[in-house]
Simulated assay, not measured.
Amino acid sequence: MMEIVHIHKPCKGVPNSPLPLLIYRKVIEADTKDVAESLEHLFAKNDWPPHWRSSVYPFTHFHTTTHEVVGVYVGSAELQLGGDNGKVYRVEVGDVILIPSGVGHKCISATDDFMLVGAYPTDHNPDICRDQPEKLSERTEAIKRIELPQSDPVLGRSEGCIKQWQSEGA
């Protein structure tokens, strides 16, 4: 199941995005032998090479140089999406979140073992931006220059963000 979350409006210094954030539930079953490896394989197969295994920062941050995908491989958490006024979403093992460039995200609470796999489209590397209202204009312009990915990290070249983001007029 894919949830489509629209976070269009800026929140203080967080630009957010005209592209919807996508949440894929139970992409990998919790009883899979190695959920992290399965997520990494799925992302890599779809041209989103894995970059890290960690948690989510406890402060609002976003990226102006790339879109990001994260997959939960152990534990659960409540993540705030869209900046300090954003909605809180619960994620658990097997869930994947595709975060468009500019969308603020942070961890509100998590189990002690909560961990994610993080990935970006091939040849893209993230910057880390914090909520700084004085930089909103330049960062909004930067995210407008980010190209759409060639494939969805979960569903491949013809589904997911490929269809959804194109239909949003991006």
Rank of each mutant, 00 (worst) to 15 (best):
Q164Y: 15
I143A: 05
R25I: 05
E92Q: 10
P58A: 12
P18H: 15
E68G: 09
K45E: 14
E3N: 13
L19M: 06
L136H: 00
P153H: 15
P126F: 07
E134G: 06
E78R: 15
G102V: 04
K106G: 04
Y73F: 12
K33N: 13
M1E: 11
C129R: 14
L81E: 03
V14K: 01
A119G: 08
R145H: 09
L81T: 01
L22N: 05
T60W: 06
V103K: 04
G102N: 07
E78C: 12
E37G: 10
S109Y: 03
V91A: 08
E147L: 13
A30H: 05
D84K: 14
P121N: 01
P15H: 00
S17M: 06
H61A: 04
T66Q: 09
R157G: 11
H61Y: 01
M115L: 13
R139H: 08
D34E: 05
G118I: 02
G94N: 05
I162W: 09
P121F: 01
S55F: 13
V93F: 03
E138S: 13
L39C: 03
D47G: 11
L42Y: 00
E159C: 05
L39G: 05
V27M: 01
A30C: 03
P149D: 02
A36N: 06
C11P: 03
S109V: 09
E37Y: 08
L148E: 03
S158W: 11
Q166C: 07
G160I: 02
V96L: 00
D47T: 13
W165I: 08
I162T: 06
Y120W: 09
P49I: 04
V35P: 03
G86K: 03
G83C: 04
H41F: 12
D95I: 06
H124R: 15
F59K: 11
K9V: 12
P49T: 09
V91F: 02
I28L: 02
V88C: 12
G83W: 02
A110Q: 11
K163P: 07
S54A: 15
S151A: 15
V88R: 15
N85T: 14
H8R: 15
E138D: 12
T140E: 08
D34Q: 04
D113N: 13
G82H: 02
G71P: 00
G13H: 00
S101Y: 02
P49M: 01
G75Q: 02
T64I: 08
E78A: 14
L155Y: 09
V5I: 15
V35E: 01
G160P: 10
D123G: 08
A36Q: 08
G82I: 01
H6W: 14
K33M: 10
S158F: 14
H8W: 14
S151P: 00
D131S: 04
D127V: 05
V35Q: 01
V72D: 10
S55G: 11
T122L: 14
A110V: 10
D112Q: 13
L155T: 06
T65Y: 09
L21M: 12
F114K: 04
P49G: 07
P49D: 06
V117I: 09
V93D: 04
C11T: 10
D152W: 07
A77T: 07
P15F: 00
V70D: 07
F114W: 04
E3M: 10
Q80G: 10
G82Y: 01
L148K: 08
N125T: 15
V96S: 00
S167W: 06
H41E: 11
I99K: 02
Q164D: 12
H41V: 14
